[in-house]
Amino acid sequence: MSDFITRLKNITGLNIHKEKLYQASLKVDKEKIRKTLLDLKKEGFLQFTTLTCIDWIEEKTFQLVYHLWHREEKLHLKVKIDIDRDAPIVETVSDIYIVAQTYEREVKEMFGVDFKGNKRLIPFILEDWNEIPPMRRDFNTREYVKDMYETEDRTEEIFKPRWKKYD
């Protein structure tokens, strides 16, 4: 696996870090994602495993992680890009990996990240959704549930220190 990573580094010129288990990670610029994935597909990363979005709200970025799998070399590669949280637009990879279409649909819906060029960014799971995309960190589920279903939220009560009476 390590040999393959060095070879891959030489061919593509990408800075790949080997990590635990069968994984390696790679950070590229937002603009280069299409080129990188095209290169990697040529190198034999045929399986598009999944696409994850992580909301780093403190740093005002969304991190997109493209998970690719090389069947022969047994390498799971995480390609990470950072995009601006306020203008989340990135180019689609659904023409490179056809299944990415579904994952992009999901990320668009859950995080509001726009994928330029994806032909099918229609609503996926949610419908008639008027709030901010729900998987963003600033979407407060407890508030939403309170308004929607009039249930009580006891989190504060549970973790309220009982010894406040001694203050």
């Binding site: 495993t49 999944t50 994850t52 909301d55 992680v65 998970h67 799971h76 995480k78």
Partner: peptide
Amino acid sequence: DVYVKVESTKGEYGYYVVSDGSEKPRR
């Protein structure tokens, strides 16, 4: 962050866990 996977009857099942060092998972 870590991605682990197993073979389920339906295919590849994977978990990608991202931790920011707190008591609750980041993603």
